[in-house]
């Protein structure tokens, strides 16, 4: 099951993708004000939701790692942060492409853009600390992940608190049914792909932890046998 689940999720993602393209480009009407470029929405918004979800997952897992010393939680936190960077890069590239076509400017420094960029940078810092930090840096990294998770509600409420070029959160809820019918499969495909990547990366991390333990034990055994030979 452990090995088959990511493959099943990839199969769902790959199988749904052609249907998404058919729905988005052939079955959904062109939005009146923005025109064809609005079709970026069907992947940009689900990616943003996935990025925020992974931020929360990483923060919660990091908190569990700090509180209970859970290695599974640690592996989930590292994996969620990495997949968040992929999804976040997708959001931060497709957003300005859409903005360039719609607002005439790729980056307007509005609160939602800045808070999203900040979230990505915090988790980039988390991944870098995890990768290059020395002994004990995992606690610092976990604290960074919890701090990053706090940014998620700021992203959500940014359009309510500050004046932004991004539309209000209610705009998604007010979509006509045919646009929702296209948004759901896109969200499903991207969630399936992201969760598949998350599961694989988590398994890698746990394998790496076990390998580290294995190498340490072998070194200890080798040292013990060398000491015995000397005595």
């Amino acid at each position: 099951m452990g090995r088959k689940l990511p493959l099943a999720l990839f199969a769902i993602g790959a199988g749904t993708f052609p249907y998404c393209v058919q729905r988005v480009f052939l079955a959904t009407p062109i939005e009146r004000q923005m025109g064809t470029v609005q079709k970026i929405f069907y992947f940009h918004v689900p990616l943003a939701w996935i990025m925020m979800l992974l931020g929360v997952v990483c923060g919660v897992a990091a908190a569990l790692q700090l509180r209970r010393g859970s290695r599974t939680a640690e592996a989930v936190a590292i994996s969620a942060a990495e997949v968040l960077l992929v999804a976040g890069l997708g959001v931060l590239i497709t957003g300005p492409i859409w903005g360039h076509a719609t607002w005439g400017k790729a980056w307007t420094w509005d609160a939602r853009q800045v808070s999203t960029g900040l979230l990505w940078l915090i988790f980039a810092a988390y991944v870098l600390v995890r990768h290059y930090g020395g002994v004990g840096s995992e606690r610092l990294a976990a604290a960074l992940a919890i701090f990053g998770a706090i940014d998620v509600p700021i992203i959500y409420y940014a359009v309510k608190i500050w004046k932004t070029t991004h539309p209000d959160n209610n705009v998604v809820g007010s979509l006509p049914p045919e646009m929702w019918a296209s948004l759901w499969p896109c969200l499903g495909a991207l969630v399936a792909m992201s969760m598949g990547l998350l599961l694989i990366r988590t398994r890698h991390e746990k394998t790496e932890m076990m390998l580290d333990d294995g190498w340490v034990q072998i070194e200890d055994l080798a040292r013990e046998s060398a000491d015995k030979d000397k005595s």
Binding site: G35, I40, F43, T94
Partner: peptide
Amino acid sequence: DYDHIVWAYGV
């Protein structure tokens, strides 16, 4: 718009 969409989806 098509150029922007191709870039966005490609990325």
